[in-house]
């Protein structure tokens, strides 16, 4: 569960996020939409503790995200358009490294488990530098779920994914959701991936302009989105 109270992020004099309140329940899938420069990525960076909010309070599973960061970090899994993987290491070495960083128990077993889930079990001992972009992204998914995070944060994960990797991503999201994990996804693509989400948050200029249940159809999502965005502009 994520609870943000009046969080703001200023860089210099510019406000990227303005006094935002947000509550995301356990097991919920929230999609964050918005035009370029709306502060979507910044919000996700704050939620993943990469960035500290300038003001406000962030609570994750009842823990203070700033003061109790040590306990919060292992709860989070992050998939971004960057893979966070080392080209010189093999797939298994990369996963083992992150496993040691998170102190995952039964590491060898767990690595096999997640590598199977993303369908890379035959490339376990190949150097990541030799992987195709799609394969690297699949390994990045494995990296993110390796330590069994309770909250999955996705920053435009579709960028550069091929169809196979996309299918795997949605499969993983679906499984985590079914197990009661929270999923937050930032995206600017009003297309795939949105079918599965429960709620929509539309962000414009660092402020939420729409927060509510997802319309049934994709056309409905598009309409909600353009209404919300044009409402601010007008």
């Amino acid at each position: 569960m994520i609870k943000a109270q009046a969080i703001s992020k200023r860089i210099g004099k510019k406000a990227i996020i303005r006094e935002m309140d947000l509550e995301i329940g356990g097991g919920e899938f929230l999609a964050i939409l918005g035009p370029n420069g709306a502060g979507k990525s910044t919000l996700l960076k704050i939620l993943s503790l990469l960035m500290r909010p300038s003001e406000g309070r962030l609570e994750i599973n009842g823990l203070d995200a700033v003061k109790e960061a040590e306990q919060v970090r292992p709860l989070l899994g992050v998939i971004s358009h960057q893979t966070y993987l080392y080209d010189a290491l093999t797939a298994s070495e990369n996963l083992e490294f992150y496993g040691r960083m998170y102190g995952v128990a039964g590491l060898t077993e767990r690595v096999r488990e997640v590598i199977k889930e993303v369908g890379l079990e035959f490339s376990l001992h190949d150097q990541v530098g030799t992987f195709s972009r799609g394969m690297q992204q699949r390994l990045a998914i494995a990296r993110a779920i390796l330590h069994r995070p309770r909250i999955l944060l996705l920053d435009e994960p579709q960028t550069g994914l091929d169809q196979q990797a996309l299918d795997i991503l949605y499969q993983v999201i679906g499984r985590l959701k079914a197990e009661g994990s929270t999923v937050v996804m930032v995206t600017h693509i009003l297309d795939y991936g949105l079918e599965a989400c429960d709620r929509l948050l539309v962000l414009v200029q660092g402020k939420p302009v729409f927060l509510g249940n997802k319309p049934e159809t994709l056309a409905g999502v598009r309409e909600t989105y353009s209404l919300a965005v044009s409402g601010v502009r007008a």
Binding site: L50, A69, E70, S80, T83, Y84, Y86, D87
Partner: peptide, 18 residues
Amino acid sequence: LTEKHNDCIAGLTLAAND
């Protein structure tokens, strides 16, 4: 440079307690 490639430094920051 190797940490900057693929933004591994962010991956490290996510995982490192301190």
